[in-house]
Design a protein around this nucleic acid. Structure first.
Lengths: 125, 125
DNA sequence: CAGCAGCATCGATCCGCCTGCATATCAGCA
DNA sequence: TGCTGATATGCAGGCGGATCGATGCTGCTG
């Protein structure tokens, strides 16, 4: 499941727009589902929220374990999934690993879900 | 998992905005994750796409089985999940069950994911 | 160099979900 | 009423994922 990391980049291409007019391709559906699957977990949603609302917009694992009530390996596991999905980026400073949101990554997903409003719902062929 | 059906309605309240400034609550995270989990499946994404691009914006199960390459019970199962998540609505006309998108349901999810751009990222306390 | 602290990885367990087959339900029709 | 076709539901196999304890790895520090 390494393709998930590049899924976002490939889907930013405007002509794909999965839920727009044309029926979605099987491969595109799997890519989008892969990214959504990374989002579709309470712990990971809270992780994104915690990191985003952190003082500098970044947080290390030790700051996230307590508020989530999960073990450190589990938190690392979720952070890994979010990073591979292209939603987080990791920076190692000394002993600590700082995570921050990838700018506009989530907004890209939101855009993919929102069909181009003005496009005719019927086939534009 | 009946709460999923009402999850969308509860989260449309603007003060929630899960990925906005404040850290997300555990209950809100689970509700949003529940809806996202309904979306995070290739078959269900293709179902939404197929229904939306259908002639009248609606389709019955028999029209969806072939393009998905899945058995009829499996398609019914996915349609049920999407309906319980508040993304589809079902109308029984005679022997057929017609499914159509709930207007702006997906757009609501997209809005929940997109933080209010101009909110200060730092704590507003 | 030895010890320690922060993270990642491994192995194992438990649970939920996707899928299909078989079956039940329901509406239309002869 | 009995039959046929379109959907829904029950059941079960199989796979993936969430979680944790134990362990390994790596910088920092004394």
């Amino acid at each position: 499941m390494d393709f998930v990391g590049t899924a976002l980049a490939e889907m930013t291409m405007p002509q794909i727009s999965p839920l727009a007019g044309e029926p979605i391709e099987r491969a595109d559906a799997e890519r989008l589902a892969g990214v959504l699957k990374a989002l579709a977990d309470p712990a990971r949603l809270r992780l994104l929220s915690l990191i985003q609302s952190a003082p500098e917009g970044e947080a290390c694992v030790c700051d996230l374990t307590a508020p989530l009530g999960l073990s450190q390996p589990t938190v690392s596991h979720h952070l890994r999934i979010l990073t591979e999905a292209g939603l987080l980026e990791r920076e190692k400073r000394g002993v600590w690993a700082y995570y921050r949101l990838v700018p506009s990554a989530i907004a890209t997903i939101a855009d993919l879900l929102t069909p181009p409003r003005k496009r005719a719902t019927k086939k534009a062929r």
